[in-house]
């Protein structure tokens, strides 16, 4: 085995998962300026929906994945409708909204634990995964799919925000919500849709993590960390920056522990974050 090729693959696999999380996180941040802590729990919910549909209702994997993505999107929209929209209308200050999202995160996580138990669950049966060799690196089909979906989602988001009217409106809200409102934009409706899309992609991330390793109610916290760090590194709210940040984090972690002992892997992510906060707080691509 080519160790370099394998490390490259490991980095891209990790980067692809981080990308899926960051895309949705950044989209929601862009439109609402909210560090949405509930994002992690919404992603986990996507994984659990797939688990429920395949294990209890006997659905096939493909329809279950679609339902999981859709379900996570709806859950995000419902959270906005129940919690964030009323707070926006009341002009709640950012710390209040942040705390509310933390509350939503905790409730969702507890809910998952009550419904499904706290243990670690696999979405795929426990057979040895089928691996393919790509340029000397061993990659499973799930990991290949994750990379493909992350690339697809990144390009899709870019085209969507750049070339559709809806995308332009989202960017307008992101620039200045008050002005957009004055110009006749129904910001509440747009933000609701943004929550739906962002949460759906988060759900996809949760599902891919579940297919690759497994799901656990507490996974949401690591998902949110893996979403926030690339986002800040890339320039919070900046979609392209988020993707670059996600890949950078994947590479830094996996190549980093090639050189230093691997028990420092967790420290690398936060080291990277600290470096950026000190030397380039606006991130690679600048704040949106």
């Amino acid at each position: 085995m080519d160790i370099f090729a394998q490390l490259l693959a490991n980095s891209v696999i990790a980067g692809a998962l981080y990308t899926l999380i960051t895309l949705g996180f950044n989209l929601i941040y862009g439109a609402t300026k909210l560090i949405n802590m509930a994002h992690g729990a919404v992603a986990a919910s996507g994984g659990y929906i797939v688990f429920f549909l395949t294990q209890t209702w006997g659905w096939g994997m493909i329809p279950a994945v679609f339902a999981g993505v859709l379900g996570a999107g709806v859950l995000g929209a419902v959270l906005d409708w129940l919690i964030f929209a009323p707070l926006r209308r009341r002009k709640a200050r950012p710390p209040v909204v942040f705390t509310a999202s933390l509350g939503a995160f905790t409730v969702l996580q507890a809910f998952l634990a009550i419904l499904f138990g706290a243990q670690f669950l696999a979405l795929l049966p426990a057979e040895a995964a089928d691996t393919v060799s790509v340029g000397g690196a061993l990659i499973t089909s799930v990991q290949l799919a994750t990379m493909g979906l992350a690339a697809l989602a990144s390009v899709g988001f870019f085209l969507f925000l750049r070339f559709t009217t809806f995308g332009k409106v989202v960017r307008a809200i992101s620039d200045d919500e008050e002005v957009a409102k004055m110009l006749g934009v129904n910001t509440d409706r747009i933000v609701r849709i943004v929550f739906f899309i962002g949460s759906a992609v988060a759900g996809l991330a949760g599902i891919m993590i579940g297919l690759d390793t497994g799901i656990q109610p507490t996974m949401g916290l690591f998902i949110i960390v893996e979403g926030v760090i690339p986002s800040i590194v890339g320039g919070i709210g900046n979609m392209a920056g988020g993707v670059i940040g996600a890949l950078l984090l994947g590479f830094a972690e996996n190549f980093g522990i090639w050189f230093i002992p691997s028990q420092w892997k967790g420290a690398i992510a936060f080291g990277l974050l600290t470096l950026f906060l000190i030397f380039r707080p606006q991130g690679i691509m600048g704040r949106k």
Binding site: I3, Q6, N10, T213, T218, M219, P261, K265
Partner: peptide
Amino acid sequence: AEEGYEQVARDLRTQLTKVKA
């Protein structure tokens, strides 16, 4: 080789890649 990982880590691929090497 001696490779450690965080208790909450669910991605040990690079640790295991180093072990394999």
